[in-house]
Amino acid sequence: MSGLLALLDDVAGIAKVAAASVDDIAAAAGKAGTKAAGVVIDDTAVTPRYVTGIDASRELPMIGRIGLGSLKNKILILLPALLILQTFLPWVITPLLMIGGAYLAYEGAEKVLHMVAPGSDAKADADHTPRDPAKLEEQKVAGAIKTDFILSAEIMTIALSQIENDSLWVEAIALAVVGIAVTLGVYGAVALLVKIDDIGLGMAKRSPGMRGFGMALVRGMPKFLSALAFIGTLAMLWVGGNILTHGLHETVWAAPYETIHHWAEAVAGAVGVAHGFVVWLVAAICDGIIALVVGGLIVAVTHPFMKKAAH
């Protein structure tokens, strides 16, 4: 009997450790996922453009293929690579984050440029578009997975930087949870977005009482997608700038990060209400301006070479 009680006591101890580990994983995954939210929004905003011009019957299969490629990027490539770096070269994580932040700044600045001067690259894109639908689909899927790899790398690196746990397996599982949850969330949302106009059209045709609502969905989706793309660009600039200033603060130059937070606190104190939100908003605006400047410089340097390479 004493042996059985000892065994039950050991099992109870193991259960407590396991429960604590599950709590650690959930807390780490939640914190990491929240920090990466800006890039997730951009990922959701970017992906619908890859099914533009594709037959409606191929939209969901394409999104499924892109989603599977995204999951492979995160779980099979990025997760083990980041854990190896975290274990053997932890000092590399911050510079990698900053490179990713610079890329986000570049992407954000390029999108702002396209908003200011739309259609500047339309002819070049048209010249390189295959006429065969199957080849067009393959090209778009491959392009989407390449873009996703960069965004996924940023999401996973941001997530890893937020996971504070000494256990490698807790880090690994938390990172896997973030990767799977983000992929399902992004591509589930994208699938809904690209089909919402079809849903609205179906509602309008099948139910006279829902015709007005259905047609409102059809008419409203282009505006919603444009708004989502704009929000995604703002999120990209905010996250990119925050990564750059935070990385500088941790490495060689603390002044930008500390100055921004000093300004944010001063403005929040002057406003006197919604202190936390005002601090975040001022810091986000400053980070976004920094990212726009950095990204604009990268665009100015790289675009002439890219145009020469295209010709």
Rank of each mutant, 00 (worst) to 15 (best):
A216W: 10
G185I: 05
P133E: 01
R206E: 09
H249S: 09
M98D: 02
I290Y: 12
V170A: 00
L5T: 14
A144M: 03
S120V: 13
A45F: 02
D24P: 08
T233S: 15
I199Q: 00
D132I: 04
K307H: 09
P118C: 03
Y187N: 06
G296W: 09
A117Q: 14
A309H: 01
P304K: 00
V17C: 11
D121Q: 15
D23Q: 04
K146H: 10
G67A: 12
D42K: 06
V186L: 05
H246A: 07
A264M: 02
A189Q: 11
G33D: 02
L244K: 14
A291R: 06
A216V: 03
G247A: 04
P208T: 01
A18C: 13
V11P: 12
D148W: 10
L193I: 08
A142V: 13
T94G: 07
A56Q: 03
D198Y: 00
G108A: 05
K195W: 03
E59R: 10
G272N: 13
D55P: 01
V194E: 00
P130D: 08
A81L: 14
K35I: 04
E154S: 05
P90H: 12
E154M: 08
Y257L: 01
R58N: 00
F277K: 08
G296F: 07
V218W: 15
A310Q: 08
I163C: 11
G269R: 10
A81G: 11
H249E: 05
M115V: 07
C286I: 09
I163Y: 13
S167D: 06
A227R: 12
R131K: 14
K307E: 01
D24M: 02
V11L: 15
D43G: 08
A255T: 09
S21M: 12
K146A: 12
G295Q: 01
R49I: 06
G179I: 03
R206T: 06
A266G: 00
L4H: 14
A37F: 11
V278F: 15
D166T: 03
A181L: 10
G69D: 05
G296C: 10
D125S: 12
F88E: 09
L4E: 10
V294I: 14
D24H: 11
V177H: 07
A255F: 07
G185Y: 11
G220R: 06
S57I: 00
M236A: 13
K195I: 03
P61K: 00
V278A: 08
P222D: 01
L225H: 08
V112T: 07
G269F: 04
G13P: 14
M115E: 06
I290H: 10
I14N: 15
L193C: 12
P130E: 03
A26E: 01
G296I: 01
D121P: 14
F213A: 14
G276W: 06
A122T: 13
L201G: 07
D132C: 08
G30I: 04
V46P: 01
E138C: 06
I243Y: 10
I75G: 11
L225E: 01
V299A: 03
M306S: 04
G188E: 07
D166E: 03
I150H: 09
I158R: 07
I260Y: 13
E250H: 09
L248K: 08
L96W: 08
M98H: 09
L7R: 10
